[in-house]
Amino acid sequence: MATVTLKGNAIETSGNLPEIGSPAPDFKLTATDLSTKTLSDFKGEKLVLNIFPSIDTGTCAQSVRQFNKEASNLENTKVLCISHDLPFAHARFCGAEGLENVISLSDYKDGSFGKDYGLNFVTGPLEALHSRSVVIVDENGIVKYTEQVPETVNEPNYKAALEALQ
């Protein structure tokens, strides 16, 4: 269990992010076209897992915009933007913003991604949503970098995450 804050108030998560050097846990997430995506769908590619509470908040939206901008320059890399938001909310946001360099995925069906990655909030007003986190996975499915943002309203460390892709 990890503790982060939301506007200075402590909230806890269901566990800890995967260990660096360990295989990334598999997942089943729903894409905006309602298809199911798993880790194996991205085999052989580097992944940026941009995980957040809700696309409809300023900081979450900014992280999607920033990773979309950065992703256009990355070879053999996919940016997966993951939350509990419905796939329709992801599609609406990315469509309205013209974001084409990220893949939006939803954990709305059973929440297993959040459980398996140890980042569901278990206390506080965001209970059951995902803690703002970034996980970098290499082309062999190994976790290379993790960040659970200590203060939920803050943005992740984009530079450190992108450097881990090198």
Rank of each mutant, 00 (worst) to 15 (best):
Leu47His: 01
Ile103Trp: 02
Ser83Lys: 07
Ile51Lys: 01
Ala61Ser: 12
Cys94Trp: 02
Lys115Cys: 05
Phe113His: 03
Phe52Met: 01
Val64Asn: 01
Val79Glu: 04
Ala91Trp: 05
Leu129Tyr: 08
Cys81Val: 12
Arg92Lys: 14
Ser63Glu: 15
Asn73Pro: 02
Ile82Val: 08
Leu49Cys: 00
Ala91Leu: 13
His90Ala: 06
Val102Gln: 02
Asn50Asp: 11
Ala91Asn: 10
Ile51Trp: 00
Leu105Lys: 08
Asn76Trp: 03
Glu45Phe: 00
Lys115Phe: 08
Pro53Leu: 01
Asp110His: 10
Ile55Met: 06
Tyr108Asp: 13
Glu100Met: 11
Asn120Leu: 15
Pro125Gly: 08
Asn101Phe: 06
Glu45Gly: 00
Leu99Pro: 01
Ser54Val: 08
Phe113Val: 11
Glu100Tyr: 10
Lys46Gln: 06
Ile103Ala: 05
Ala128Ile: 15
Leu99Met: 06
Cys81Pro: 04
Val48Met: 03
Gly95Lys: 08
Val79Tyr: 03
Leu80Pro: 02
Pro53Phe: 01
Ser131Glu: 12
Gly58Gln: 01
Val79Asn: 02
Asp56Trp: 04
Ser63Cys: 05
Ile82Cys: 02
Lys69Asn: 10
Gly118Trp: 09
Pro87His: 05
Leu126Ile: 13
Glu45Ala: 01
Ser106Phe: 10
Glu127His: 14
Ser63Asp: 07
Ala89Thr: 14
Ile55Leu: 03
Tyr117Thr: 08
Gly124Gln: 10
Ile103Leu: 10
Gly98Cys: 09
Gly111Ser: 09
His84Ala: 14
Thr77Lys: 07
Lys115Arg: 15
Ser106Leu: 08
